[in-house]
């Protein structure tokens, strides 16, 4: 799981990129708390061949990246 809550862009994407490059997970959960980060992580996930689902929980967002 990548917890990028409170971090401003591009840091959440950098963290996801690191995880994808290092472990190439089939599934990755990412937590962020700004909609701009949801958009950026989604765009990056899709460019890496992941499908992305987003769930909003109390103003925070749980993204599930799946290959």
């Amino acid at each position: 799981m990548v917890d990028a809550r409170g971090l401003s862009c591009p840091l959440p994407v950098v963290m996801v990129q690191k995880e994808v490059t290092k472990n190439n997970p089939a599934e990755l959960e990412v937590m962020v708390d700004a909609r701009v980060c949801v958009e950026n992580v989604t765009r990056f996930g899709k460019s890496q061949g992941y499908s992305v689902t987003v769930e909003e929980i109390d103003g925070e967002y749980k993204l599930l990246l799946r290959k």
């Binding site: 862009c9 591009p10 994407v13 950098v14 990129q17 701009v36 958009e39 765009r43 990056f44 460019s47």
Partner: peptide, 19 residues
């Protein structure tokens, strides 16, 4: 739109994202 003059080049170099 999240328009940012520095983000453009940064995202291209780091993520190949041209948005």
């Amino acid at each position: 739109s999240r328009l940012c003059m520095v983000g453009g080049m940064r995202d291209v170099v780091m993520f190949r994202d041209f948005t």
